[in-house]
């Protein structure tokens, strides 16, 4: 039989049981990416010495290398040199590499969003006696955030898809589970079609929610 429908439908409960792990990786990575990108963007926005140069190098490296290479560096390579890293779990390694990789792109979108707030409004803050920090929190960030939302959404989708690399370090996430099932039954088509459907549905659902949020934000101010 070319396509075993029973095998195919039977795969869903098994694969979906690891959806929790995949979602956990994706959400943790999103939150981590959000904060790391924000910190990098603010540092580069204010051109804080030393830290700016440090993160410029960081961004160059993580933008220019494939996610899977970064993951292998973090999980397999670096612990050979820094034994303290041996305690790292595959889960942590995947989340970290997703955060570092995505932040190297998102920090740049955040900085552009910060810079989209015109100088005049910032001068208005200062002329009223506000501090730099107050101007950032009260005026710049709220506007920059709205500008950055579409890009945050796109990067989130990238993160969701990136979680599929978890299997390379032995995680039983959606992809990992499907791969194991395929190896057992030798029904590769059913297994990978199942993964395709799962990711497709998740990503389309997330995109739908993102469009709703974007539409709401477009008319916010």
């Amino acid at each position: 039989m070319l396509f075993d429908i029973n095998n195919f439908t039977g795969l869903f409960p098994i694969v979906l049981s690891s959806l929790g792990l995949t979602s956990e990786i994706a959400l943790l990575s999103l939150i981590g990416t959000f904060f790391l990108s924000l910190i990098i963007a603010i540092i580069r926005y204010y051109k804080i010495p030393i830290l700016t140069q440090f993160f410029n190098v960081f961004i160059t490296v993580f933008r220019a290398t494939p996610l899977v290479v970064e993951l292998f560096m973090i999980f397999f390579a670096l612990p050979c040199i820094f034994p303290a890293l041996k305690a790292m779990t595959p889960f942590q390694a995947v989340v970290l590499s997703l955060i570092f990789n995505t932040s190297s792109f998102m920090a740049e979108s955040f900085r552009a969003a910060l810079e989209s707030v015109d100088r005049g409004q910032i001068e208005a803050c200062y002329s009223l006696g506000m501090t730099k920090r107050q101007a950032m929190l009260r005026v710049i960030l709220p506007q920059a955030f709205v500008v950055a939302v579409p890009s945050i959404g796109n990067h989130f989708i990238g993160i969701i898809k990136g979680t599929a690399l978890g299997f390379t370090v032995g995680l039983a996430d959606v992809m990992g589970t499907a791969k194991m099932e395929a190896a057992l039954s030798l029904r590769f088509f059913e297994a990978y079609l199942c993964v395709t459907v799962v990711y497709l549905v998740i990503v389309l659902a997330v995109e739908f929610v993102l469009r709703l949020i974007e539409r709401r934000l477009a008319n916010l101010y």
Partner: peptide, 11 residues
């Protein structure tokens, strides 16, 4: 300061 371009906080 009252600015030529108003510079109200847009948010």
């Amino acid at each position: 300061m009252v600015f030529q371009n108003y510079n109200l906080f847009r948010n």
